[in-house]
Amino acid sequence: MKILNCPLNGPRNISEFVWGGEVKEHPALDCTDEQWVDYAVLENNTAGVVREWWYHVPTAYWIIAERNTVTDEIIRTYPARELFKDRVEFPAPAVKP
């Protein structure tokens, strides 16, 4: 069983974690439908280093792991707050659709 190094709990069996998909940038609310579908539905399946969400179930803790999808090597893990530093606002659209 693979080990994943949790920034809070240290090295743990990967069975303690749930995979949460690639980290994707949320498009602006006024993006096109195509951009939205690309974000919500399509996966890149990158062969190489990707940033992924992982959830440590016993501590209910979302972290980010940089993993090489070719070698399955986990290069780095860190708390999500390193990537998501600021409060996100969704202002009401200026013009009503």
């Binding site: 709990n9 743990r12 069975s15 303690e16 179930v57 016993p58 501590t59």
Partner: peptide, 9 residues
């Protein structure tokens, strides 16, 4: 240790 014990958190 916050972990899984007998398949329970």
């Amino acid at each position: 240790a916050q972990t899984s014990v007998a398949r329970m958190s």
